[in-house]
Write a protein that binds this DNA or RNA. Structure first.
Lengths: 210, 210
DNA sequence: CCCTTACTGTATCGTTCACTCCAATTGTAA
DNA sequence: TTACAATTGGAGTGAACGATACAGTAAGGG
């Protein structure tokens, strides 16, 4: 429409270069962590010189943050939110957990890198860590929202414990899979997790009303 | 006595130096991960020159592995196994989970460092990672043993899923606490986790027998 | 035709890396 | 006293680190 030619013939391969840098960085960071992700290694992996990396990103910290952001977007795209809102609450919760599990198998980078950053306790916190924690809090709020809708009558304290437990289970199961590989059936484990959390929720709600 | 004086006056401060080095390394590694743990930083933190570190440890990998090993011993000492074997199975499971939670609050280094190493996927795996995974498998076997005793009749598949879920929950809750700090009541969450796992176990055993 | 924008390539800066060498120092034993 | 092993103190290795400077190239707009 407005300016198709402007972008049709890649003005340079800038956009593609940025993707190649991020692809390389996501791989290196996944292997070696924050400190282990050297500009030289990323440069070698993507075939572009260091100066190109510094043209696209302010510094190393900015690069890592961009990696987190993009891998989050990739993961979000992999989570197909359940369009159908049918079935019992338990069925719906289970289906959703299965979807999240599948998305984590397909796009594990976000959570793996995020957890690696989250476990570090540097004096000067990397931006990527902050980004991860923010995004994570949003996810937690979504879970709380859903719990409120499907299991009404939960008091605030129960809700906090429940969302903490739900997120923790997801993290832990993901870590198990990262360690043990395909031996862990992530979808089945997530469905089990969803079921247990749902039961705990209904019980808490019942106690809350009484 | 054969030679009390030989050991009374410490022949040099070798043993103490080793501890000081490990103390410094555990702190730095907890802040910055494997790659971020530089010999210079450890040297500065413990007040001993780099050459002393290399006298006590073969190389950096050896140092990190020793850190994992010692922090595991520290953690093991913090887990006071329940001497009393009284109460219902659920009470016993819950009490034990509470103990593990307390020990993780008091000695979190082992699991934090271990998870940091476990999430990395280097081409050449650090020795510390191997040590962590071995120790972890032993812990998993202990859980299976206890489950077998308290909830008999679990088939192998159920047992595998159950131990995976139990360990994953512990990991995940620990990560939550590392991220959110004292806002997470680790003991309470572990007790909730124990309860949910126990219920799932009895249900699986009943289904298994039928 | 030149100017601007968007990149790439080379070369290099000062710093830090893991690790080594070797001369002290110190407690112990002969 | 001598001998020796255990340990420490520094000074120093080449390689790799993050980051920068700058010249060069390609394409669209005027």
């Amino acid at each position: 429409m407005a300016k198709p030619q402007t972008t049709r013939k890649k003005r340079a391969n800038g956009v593609e270069s940025r993707q190649r840098i991020l692809d390389a960085a996501v791989q290196i960071a996944g292997e070696r962590g924050y400190e282990g992700t050297s500009i030289a290694a990323v440069s070698a992996a993507c075939g572009l010189p260091a100066s190109s990396i510094y043209w696209h990103f302010k510094d190393k910290d900015d690069l890592i943050a961009a990696v987190i952001e993009r891998s989050f977007d990739t993961w979000l795209a992999a989570v197909e939110l359940p369009g159908e809102e049918t079935g019992t609450p338990l069925e719906r919760v289970t289906a959703m957990a299965g979807n999240v599990a599948k998305s984590l198998v397909d796009a594990p980078d976000f959570l793996r890198l995020g957890l690696m950053l989250a476990l570090e306790r540097r004096p000067a916190e990397p931006r990527g860590r902050t980004v991860f924690l923010q995004v994570r809090d949003i996810a937690r709020a979504k879970i709380a929202e859903m719990a409120q809708a499907l299991v009404p009558g939960l008091d605030e304290e129960s809700m906090h414990a429940l969302t903490t437990y739900a997120v923790a289970g997801a993290d832990g199961l993901f870590v198990q899979r990262e360690i043990n590989g395909d031996a862990v059936d992530l979808v089945a484990m997530f469905e089990l997790h969803a079921q247990l959390v749902y039961e705990a929720a209904t019980r808490m709600a019942a106690r809350s009303k009484a």
